[in-house]
């Protein structure tokens, strides 16, 4: 195997004697690939995220990212969650720049090259349509804008891997679909690898090159679906029969998973 991210027969249990959270999971993601992981709630999708980012060590098996064994937090990753967790005492710009105050080598260069870094943060905010909001506080932004800023914060240090855990789950349908386009555009522009955890099948099909379906707890990967829909995908794409069929098939698969053992 020679993927950018490789999980080799990974198992995870949180505590000795606990039920397995993740069972025999193998996964391979190519560099620059957009992967979505779908499954019923509580299937260990979030555990998968923590494993790949090195926040949790696997109980068994191996994880490598960019050719290196993951044994602790890896800083080539950016993360965003459903809750935007922007800091209310910082302006949007200051929030976006937070990772630069932590990740090396930016951390030691920030003071000297502050103007250049700020310029970069402004450019990124402009890319997601937030120019003019740099000096607003997060609580002055709408939910969708907060998530846009959250994406910027996850990307400002140019991570090779973007991990998203239901980032649009709390948004209304229209805002969510706008953000799909924003995310797709960012991804096409910057070429990072994405693992998107979601339970929205339309979201998975709209965005991902490959969709993985996970089983109920203990989580296992049941199916890997290649998604050949051409890019960039638009609202029009989501009405094509190809799109609808794929969503439909995944839906059936999930239904089977949910029906199995209870």
């Amino acid at each position: 195997m020679s993927g950018f991210i490789e999980l080799d027969r990974v198992r995870l249990r949180y505590q000795e004697g606990d039920e397995l959270a993740l069972e025999q999971t193998s996964l391979e993601v190519a560099e620059g690939e957009f992967v979505a992981v779908v499954g019923p709630s509580g299937c260990g999708k979030s555990s998968l995220m923590k494993l790949v980012t090195g926040l949790l060590p696997p109980s068994e098996g191996n994880i490598t990212v960019a050719g290196q064994d993951v044994s602790g937090p890896i800083s080539i990753v950016g993360m965003a969650f459903q809750a935007s967790t922007l800091l209310p005492w910082r302006t949007t710009l200051q929030n976006v720049m937070l990772p630069l105050e932590i990740v090396q080598p930016h951390r030691s260069q920030l003071r000297r090259h502050r103007a250049a870094y700020e310029e970069k943060a402004r450019a990124l905010l402009a890319e997601v349509g937030l120019s003019g909001f740099e000096d607003k506080y997060p609580w002055e932004l709408s939910g969708g804008m907060q998530q846009r800023a959250n994406l910027c914060r996850a990307l400002i240090h140019e991570p090779k891997l973007l991990m998203l855990d239901e980032p649009f789950g709390a948004l209304d349908a229209f805002t969510r679909e706008e953000l799909w386009d924003t995310l797709q555009a960012l991804w096409m522009q910057h070429g990072f690898t994405v693992i998107l955890v979601t339970h929205d099948l339309r979201e998975a099909v709209y965005l991902a090159d490959t969709v993985y379906v996970m089983s109920k707890r203990p989580g296992r990967i049941l199916e890997r679906r290649h998604n050949p829909l051409p890019r960039p995908r638009t609202q029009e794409t989501s009405f094509t029969s190809q799109f609808v069929d794929l969503v439909h098939e995944l839906r059936d698969k999930i239904k089977d998973v949910r029906a199995a053992d209870g």
Binding site: K50, L55, P73, M79, A80, I102, V103, A154, H157
Partner: peptide, 14 residues
């Protein structure tokens, strides 16, 4: 502190 925020920061090597 929100656990998500802690994860974000820890993954950055904080």
């Amino acid at each position: 502190l929100e656990p998500e925020l802690r994860d974000v920061l820890r993954s950055l090597g904080a």
